[in-house]
């Protein structure tokens, strides 16, 4: 068998999907952002009733930087048996988009795009124009940065500065010490005292 130990690809132009013949898991198409909306409308009319997934990949040094990936599935929009469903066509649409560039929302075509687009916006910072309610979905609303970008540090930019979240200090309870204020040493001392007393009482 051929060795799987292929030397790593170096250099700026990392674009794995273009480097290798597709594996045959789906019909793959690459589309420009301008043509995206029209193509997806045509596909929807063609019977791709399901937008299975919508995700993004960050190729940090490539131009355009991001790939937004649409996975479509052609299923009959009515009750159908196993043989009627058969092996539905899978389609994968890759759309290169640059930092700061917006994509048209497809929420009106497939309602499920709602959360998927919000997630891509939250984690990658790609804006979808025409989305009714584009706000963060996974991270807190006041979070800064988009965590799944390749230049976002794994542990988050703030972690090194303060291991303890700020809200921990904002309550009447001081974290780390019991509400009674007694420390472990005091506790052990108390246990010892109680035991000594117990020994004395008959």
């Amino acid at each position: 068998m051929p060795s799987t130990q292929i030397p790593p690809i170096t250099g700026a132009a990392i674009d794995p999907p273009s480097l290798r013949p597709p594996i045959g898991d789906a019909v793959i198409e690459r589309i420009d952002p301008q043509a995206l909306r029209a193509r997806l409308e045509a596909l929807k009319a063609d019977g791709f009733t399901m937008l299975l997934d919508l995700g993004a990949v960050d190729y940090l040094t490539r131009k355009p930087r991001f790939d937004v990936v649409y996975h479509l599935l052609k299923l009959p929009a009515r009750a159908a048996s196993v043989s009627e469903v058969g092996t539905p066509v899978r389609m994968r649409i890759l759309c290169g988009v640059d930092d700061g560039q917006a994509l048209p929302s497809v929420m009106d075509l497939w309602t499920s795009a709602d959360w998927a687009e919000r997630e891509v916006y939250d984690l990658f910072g790609i804006v979808f124009e025409g989305h009714a309610d584009l706000r963060r979905i996974q991270m807190p609303y006041d979070w800064e940065g988009h965590p799944l970008r390749k230049d976002y540090p794994m542990r988050g930019p703030e972690r090194e500065r303060s291991p303890r979240p700020a809200f921990a200090n904002k309550s009447n309870v001081v974290a780390g010490t019991p509400p009674s204020g007694r420390t472990l040493a005091a506790l052990q001392e108390q246990v010892k005292r109680v035991r000594a007393q117990d020994d004395k009482t008959p």
Binding site: T49, M50, L51, L52, L75, P76, A77, R78, A79, A80, S81, V82, E84, V85, P88, W110, T111, S112
Partner: peptide, 19 residues
Amino acid sequence: ALGWNVTGPSLRASGIAYD
């Protein structure tokens, strides 16, 4: 169900036998 991208048992309970 298709519009909301529902799959699995929930989709099959709506009549589409996609497995």
